[in-house]
């Protein structure tokens, strides 16, 4: 695939380039909608399309007014603040419970392993609207509906499968003789965990945590039902904005979020490679 052999026929050449064009179009389809909102968010007008000034690359066609609006509008600021308060707490809960359980699940003898795994992964499988409905019914029964902790617990539950999956994946390559060696040298289980096991699985734990964080940070369906106006998060505010009066400020917020995702993605990629290198699964 990488190169055409010199003896390729005309049809083969034609197909080779046609195929690349097709793939290019699909890549364009994937990335264009995300890229296109970046210049649009600097629009000096309240339009959702490129103005003639923008196309002429006239500096007057661009402005920071939508960003300015985002940073001064109390609704957006409150939403931002709520997101920042909810997501880290939910992440903390999912990571601490999830890592512990992933270590348990990676032991050689676990009773009911399949059933346990199915239960713990289920929040990822069940459609969000169903989780949201169930949580809305149940949390209003126990008085958690519309409270900060209600949203945090719900988001923590949704983030758990990601932590379990990434951490167990890291533990698959974990050499158990390392812990035995540590014990042999006189380390107690806590020291062994802190000094030997944890540093090795840390990349997995962090990327699981990032998954859990982005799950909570981007989540809108569950918070829409479990939260009340006091827990209005950034995605919720975007959702309302999109449904009622769509304002170009949304594009500014979207651009900021795309930047955050790009940073998170880069972090996860670096961590994954580091983890593979540490476990000797890939060279360099």
């Amino acid at each position: 695939m990488s190169g055409l052999p010199p003896y390729a026929t005309f049809t083969q050449k034609l197909w080779h380039y046609a195929f690349r064009v097709i793939c290019g179009i699909v890549f364009f389809f994937l990335i264009a909608p995300i890229i296109v909102i970046v210049p649009l968010s600097f629009n000096a007008q309240d339009f959702f399309t490129f103005t003639p000034e923008m196309l002429a690359l006239d500096p007057d066609g661009y402005s920071f007014k939508h960003y300015n609006d985002f940073f001064t509008n109390p609704d957006w600021q409150q939403a931002m603040w709520n997101s920042v308060r909810i997501a880290p707490m939910a992440t903390l809960l999912s990571v601490s419970f999830g890592t512990l359980a992933a270590i348990g699940l990676s032991q050689p003898h676990v009773p009911f392993r399949r059933a346990l795994m199915a239960i713990l992964i289920s929040p990822m499988i069940v459609p969000l609207i169903i989780s949201a409905a169930g949580m809305y019914f149940f949390y209003s029964r126990v008085g958690l509906q519309g409270s900060y902790w209600g949203v945090v617990l719900a988001h923590a539950a949704l983030g758990i499968p990601f932590v379990i999956i990434t951490v167990t994946a890291t533990l698959v390559g974990f050499d158990r003789s390392l812990t035995r060696a540590a014990a042999n040298l006189g380390a107690n289980p806590v020291t062994t965990f802190a000094k030997v096991q944890m540093p090795l699985i840390l990349p997995g734990v962090i990327s699981g945590g990032l998954f859990a964080f982005i799950t909570s940070f981007d989540e809108v369906v569950v918070v829409l039902f479990v939260g009340s106006a006091g827990q209005k998060t950034l995605p919720w505010q975007m959702f309302t904005g999109l449904r009622e009066q769509i304002s170009p400020t949304i594009l500014a917020v979207a651009t900021i979020l795309v930047t955050i995702s790009a940073i998170l993605l880069a972090t996860i990629e670096i961590l994954r490679r580091r983890s593979e290198r540490l476990r000797g699964m890939s060279p360099g």
């Binding site: 003898h109 169930g134 019914f137 539950a157």
Partner: peptide, 26 residues
């Protein structure tokens, strides 16, 4: 086996309470 189960049980309890119970309620 008991140790493995003990490590999993806090999370199991957490998921049962925050997720499985709501589904059962529904």
């Amino acid at each position: 086996k008991a140790r493995a189960f003990l490590l999993v049980s806090p999370l199991l309890f957490f998921v049962l309470l925050t997720f499985i119970a709501p589904i059962a309620d529904m």
